[in-house]
Amino acid sequence: MDLSNSTLLTSPDTYVGIYQELSKYNVHLNIFERLWASWYAYMQNDVLATGIMSFVMHEAVYFGRSLPWIIVAKISYFNKYKIQGAKIPTAAEQWDCAKLVLLSHFTVELPQIWLFHPMAKYCGMETGVPFPAWTTMLFHIAVFFVVEDTWHYWAHRAMHWGPLYKSVHKIHHQYSAPFGMAAEYASPIEVMVLGLGTVGAPIAWVLLTGKLHILTMYIWIVLRLFQAIDAHSGYEFPWSLHHFLPFWAGAEHHDVHHERFIGNYSSSFRWWDYVMDTESGPEAAKARRERKAKKEAKKVQ
Score class of each variant (00 low, 15 high):
residue 66 S to Y: 00
residue 38 S to W: 12
residue 178 P to E: 04
residue 53 M to H: 08
residue 286 K to L: 05
residue 97 C to K: 09
residue 136 T to Y: 01
residue 79 N to K: 13
residue 87 K to T: 07
residue 234 G to F: 02
residue 291 R to K: 06
residue 26 N to A: 08
residue 285 A to S: 13
residue 15 Y to I: 02
residue 93 E to S: 06
residue 164 L to Q: 06
residue 283 E to D: 15
residue 118 P to R: 13
residue 218 Y to N: 04
residue 117 H to I: 08
residue 196 L to G: 12
residue 266 S to R: 14
residue 31 I to E: 12
residue 208 L to T: 10
residue 292 K to L: 10
residue 263 G to R: 06
residue 73 A to V: 03
residue 154 W to A: 00
residue 84 Q to F: 08
residue 205 W to Q: 11
residue 71 I to D: 09
residue 149 D to H: 09
residue 253 H to M: 00
residue 267 S to K: 02
residue 218 Y to T: 07
residue 247 F to P: 04
residue 178 P to K: 07
residue 115 L to N: 13
residue 250 G to F: 08
residue 38 S to H: 07
residue 35 L to T: 04
residue 4 S to F: 12
residue 227 Q to N: 10
residue 259 E to R: 11
residue 208 L to S: 08
residue 168 V to Y: 01
residue 245 L to K: 05
residue 125 M to P: 00
residue 258 H to Q: 04
residue 181 M to K: 14
residue 42 Y to W: 12
residue 51 G to S: 08
residue 228 A to K: 03
residue 299 K to Q: 07
residue 113 I to R: 12
residue 189 I to L: 13
residue 73 A to W: 02
residue 154 W to F: 07
residue 286 K to C: 07
residue 149 D to M: 12
residue 19 Y to G: 09
residue 110 L to F: 11
residue 186 A to F: 02
residue 58 H to D: 05
residue 171 I to H: 13
residue 154 W to E: 01
residue 248 W to P: 00
residue 267 S to A: 08
residue 103 L to M: 14
residue 3 L to D: 07
residue 244 F to N: 10
residue 171 I to K: 13
residue 136 T to M: 09
residue 258 H to S: 06
residue 220 W to S: 09
residue 197 G to R: 03
residue 16 V to F: 10
residue 92 A to P: 01
residue 55 F to S: 15
residue 227 Q to K: 03
residue 286 K to V: 11
residue 195 G to Q: 01
residue 137 M to W: 12
residue 12 P to L: 08
residue 155 A to L: 15
residue 291 R to H: 15
residue 202 P to F: 02
residue 143 V to D: 10
residue 288 R to Q: 12
residue 95 W to Y: 10
residue 181 M to S: 14
residue 121 K to F: 02
residue 150 T to P: 02
residue 184 E to F: 06
residue 250 G to W: 02
residue 176 S to R: 07
residue 252 E to Y: 15
residue 10 T to Y: 14
residue 54 S to H: 15
residue 61 V to Y: 05
residue 187 S to M: 04
residue 210 G to W: 06
residue 160 H to V: 06
residue 97 C to M: 09
residue 246 P to M: 14
residue 127 T to F: 13
residue 78 F to A: 15
residue 13 D to V: 14
